Lab assay of single mutants.
Amino acid sequence: PQECLLLEPGLNEIMANSLDYNERLWAWESWRSEVGKQLRPLYEEYVVLKNEMARANHYEDYGDYWRGDYEVNGVDGYDYSRGQLIEDVEHTFEEIKPLYEHLHAYVRAKLMNAYPSYISPIGCLPAHLLGDMWGRFWTNLYSLTVPFGQKPNIDVTDAMVDQAWDAQRIFKEAEKFFVSVGLPNMTQGFWENSMLTDPGNVQKAVCHPTAWDLGKGDFRILMCTKVTMDDFLTAHHEMGHIQYDMAYAAQPFLLRNGANEGFHEAVGEIMSLSAATPKHLKSIGLLSPDFQEDNETEINFLLKQALTIVGTLPFTYMLEKWRWMVFKGEIPKDQWMKKWWEMKREIVGVVEPVPHDETYCDPASLFHVSNDYSFIRYYTRTLYQFQFQEALCQAAKHEGPLHKCDISNSTEAGQKLFNMLRLGKSEPWTLALENVVGAKNMNVRPLLNYFEPLFTWLKDQNKNSFVGWSTDWSPYADQSIKVRISLKSALGDKAYEWNDNEMYLFRSSVAY
């Protein structure tokens, strides 16, 4: 590609939709070469300064400071330590791993069909083939991996386009969902002041979706909304933040926050679980009234959910574990990228498509890292959202599997949720969690119950496949010279610098 592309739109479109291996590689590498390399010296300084700040406030390091958001002291029976968070994340991840490994094996087999000769049947997945710029969410792999393609499509993007949905309609439908469970409408100022579409040439905007509580009843969302099912669900997520903000607005200023950061992320995700169900999509006209649910549509639905929800958990866990180790000084600065990709291979089963030396800073190419967000919130929120969903479905008197529950129109479920939201940070999160779900610790069981039918199906699908991955295989081993030459021509001086062995191999191949 010759034109100058922004991340959004532009590069993200390539990473969402392109099936051209080399075009995807160009976009993936260009973003890291342009952005990651510029941020490397800044990120090194950032780590030093943030650690100084944390230690001045009596924390061991900046990662310890972040984990302090979960700490509860002096509340008998509800205490929770920063170290306990690490333990809980690690042991819940071990419980999730078998499901993830089977999802990984299934996706690898489907990617082998889409990119023959580029995928190893026992290796890691190349990082640039996973549906977005970071491989964070695998949602866009659904069209390549759908188990029963002859069934009606449960990705309702086409239906939204056919019905001329726009950003306003998407957010109005999200608002209807919250109102149906007894939560309030958005304010008039929300509709007047939010930026729900890309302003285009009028001004440059950071398009990463964010929710804003500017105080004095001024709530806004910034999002360059596209007419897709993914953005339909994202709208519910962002509006969930606003509902939380509005619910605790009466609290004293210092207590106007989520019980912990994971709670804030979980609220909209609960609504997304219901909004994505075929039952709900039928009720708002995005699935045909004669759409029939059966075992095959159930597996299609659960796989689509797993690509988004299960596929991202190792990504989140590994990223934050790397940062915690960096802040603690356990990874020397001259080994940041080496350790990043070692951990990516070992924990996530994902491999870099071309080698990256220590001039890169791949983590900082992600919005949340370069903008100083702690990231473990996206792991804890996933466990909380299924715990909350299970409890709210019980309040809504849902009968049947958890993945079929739609809590819309249940004011009982809405009241149970609101009673927790309005507390803000005035009560320990362990107590707030217990008030809703009857337990005071994160628990992976509801998530595993939700995906149980899919897990059973995946194990059957993978019975003749290798489950797990070898960390030795690299996608650039066989194609390295071709890849390096093409990237050198595209990126010039910003391309990865060849070492002596690679230059010798190149000259030998040319001479041959």
Rank of each mutant, 00 (worst) to 15 (best):
R220W: 02
M229A: 11
N193G: 02
W212Q: 03
E192M: 07
H264P: 09
N140K: 14
E192V: 07
R377K: 13
F219T: 01
A250I: 14
G217W: 02
K304N: 11
R256F: 01
F137N: 08
F137T: 07
G215H: 09
N140L: 11
S374L: 05
R136M: 13
F375E: 10
A250F: 09
R136Y: 11
F301V: 09
P209L: 03
P252D: 15
Y373V: 11
G189E: 04
N140F: 11
G217M: 02
G189M: 02
F301R: 09
Y373E: 09
M246Q: 04
S374T: 11
S272G: 13
D218I: 00
G215F: 14
S272Q: 10
A249Y: 03
V206S: 07
L233Q: 13
T187G: 05
F375L: 08
I309S: 10
H237V: 12
F375N: 10
H208L: 07
N153A: 10
F219Q: 04
E269Y: 09
F253C: 03
R220N: 00
A250W: 14
N257K: 13
E265Y: 06
L233H: 06
S374H: 08
G189K: 01
D372N: 07
E269R: 08
D245Q: 14
D230W: 10
K216T: 02
Q188E: 10
T210I: 05
L214P: 06
R381G: 15
D245K: 04
K304E: 09
N193M: 07
R256P: 01
N153R: 10
F137V: 09
Q251F: 01
Y373I: 11
A250D: 09
D245S: 13
E261D: 11
R136S: 07
Q251W: 03
H241G: 11
H264M: 05
G189N: 02
Y378V: 11
N140V: 10
K304Y: 10
V206T: 05
R220M: 04
M229N: 02
R220K: 03
A249N: 05
D245H: 12
K216L: 01
A250Y: 14
S272Y: 06
M246I: 08
Y378P: 10
W212D: 02
N257I: 13
S272N: 12
T234G: 06
D245Y: 07
R220T: 03
D372H: 10
G215E: 03
H208W: 09
T234P: 00
Q305G: 09
D245E: 12
V206L: 08
K304S: 11
F375R: 06
Q305Y: 04
I309W: 09
Q188F: 09
F137S: 08
E265M: 10
N257Q: 09
E261H: 05
M229P: 05
L214A: 07
T234N: 07
S272A: 14
T308W: 08
G215T: 14
R256W: 00
T234K: 08
K216M: 02
S272P: 07
M246W: 01
T308P: 09
W212T: 03
F137E: 08
T308Y: 09
S374E: 13
F253Q: 03
R256L: 07
Q305H: 09
Q188H: 13
R136H: 08
Y373H: 12
Q305L: 04
T210P: 03
F253N: 04
H368F: 08
H368G: 10
E261K: 12
T234M: 09
P209K: 05
R377L: 09
E261A: 06
D230H: 06
G217A: 01
